[in-house]
Design a protein around this nucleic acid. Structure first.
Lengths: 218, 218
DNA sequence: CCACTAATGTACGAACCGGTACGTTAGTTA
DNA sequence: TAACTAACGTACCGGTTCGTACATTAGTGG
């Protein structure tokens, strides 16, 4: 039998604003991540959707606004993923290690996000600066780290001369570099940083390094 | 009195191939670093030199070749600077610390190089892969590190499960991220990573971290 | 000082590409 | 089912931008 439903609930309807919009955004994210802002082509984005260029201007207004929305959505997704992490039950050192692993995995699993961030930095962050929603200075990762560092410091096992943002930067730098600079690093040093065979090595090494640093006398 | 010199030695001569070429390359490096490959404009480069667009095609052949030469020259310069470092007289740990500081300073002093590397990675390293001169798998920094790690391991103060390329990657990641991602990181976390007031903190922190890691039991 | 060539300048072409004017149709609602 | 509007498609425009044809001059060697 067949369920009777309103046309707007029908997933196969020809005209579906949200669907079209979402499809454009998904394709645009891939295109911008792939070629950079100036390298991306509006016509190319349109061709890879089931709609036309006209719709990009209809829904987003222009290339720039489309890029900004793609960037915004990418950050929102990462932020949402960070919310999921829970390390309350772990000892400070183990928790830091776990957090480093989660960050490591995130970066590896989201190369498009990494590329968009690189691209945005090439443009000196001019677009992200205009997205007030994203300027949440109390990011989940930092909130977690602040708590962890305090716990570790109270137990006397962590040094006190680094703060949550410092540690987050360190971990991000390692994970980001490994993905973002894989090409130049790979050709110059003859080492594929994303070789699955070396994945565990780097994943462990990051945790070792951060914990060694935090537990060293400072 | 005035020295008599051949016209070709006269720095003020109107037609000077090397001078024109060098000027184009310098301006191109700045333009590509500033706007990325696709964002850079050949006309803009020409306008900022004392010559015309015609000369860019005369000397380099095209936009792409100009970019490749700019990239090549940027790498050559960094390589040359690395050659200067000498840490033979230092104990392994102090030497590592010194090397980290030199890398830290290099990155901070050469943001254009950092940007070119980011841009090249956005393009998946397709240009650098075709520069056989740059694929010197035994870079000065790595040669130095290999020696240092061996010395430290022989003295029993360094762990043995990381190699020179790993350590170089770690140090580079930290230094690179701080410069390359200063914009997005700054707006999201409200911390200017290049604030002169925090420079010493991060410079010391990097050395602390790498040495703590290497001297921890592994 | 003359002839020859490397170096340089001008003016322009052609394709590309972001953006839009205008017309059409699907879905909704009275 | 008719009228209305959100959603969509086509065809095109105008500026930009890489690249080049052609003319010219500075410097050099004989």
């Amino acid at each position: 039998m067949e369920a009777t439903r309103a046309p707007s609930d029908n997933p196969e309807r020809r005209r579906d604003a949200e669907r079209t919009r979402a499809e454009i955004l998904a394709v645009a994210t891939a295109e911008f991540a792939d070629r950079g802002y100036d390298g991306a082509r509006v016509d190319e984005i349109a061709d890879r959707t089931r709609t036309t260029k006209r719709m990009i201007y209809y829904y987003f207004g222009g290339k720039r606004q489309l890029y900004v929305e793609a960037l915004e959505q990418a950050y929102a997704r990462i932020r949402a993923a960070e919310q999921e992490v829970n390390v309350d039950h772990l000892e400070p050192a183990a928790a830091i290690r776990r957090l480093a692993e989660v960050t490591f995995d995130h970066h590896e699993a989201n190369p498009d996000f990494i590329r968009l961030v690189s691209i945005e930095n090439i443009h000196r962050g001019e677009h992200i600066a205009r997205l007030p929603d994203l300027i949440d200075l109390n990011t989940p990762a930092v909130r977690l780290l602040t708590d962890l560092l305090r716990r570790g410091q109270e137990q006397g096992v962590f040094r006190t001369d680094v703060d949550a943002v410092d540690v987050h930067m360190t971990i991000s730098a390692f994970c980001f570099f490994r993905v973002a600079n894989q090409y130049t690093f790979g050709t110059i040093f003859g080492r594929d940083l994303l070789d699955p065979g070396r994945r565990e090595h780097y994943r462990t090494m990051l945790g070792d390094m951060v914990v060694a640093h935090l537990t060293a006398v400072g």
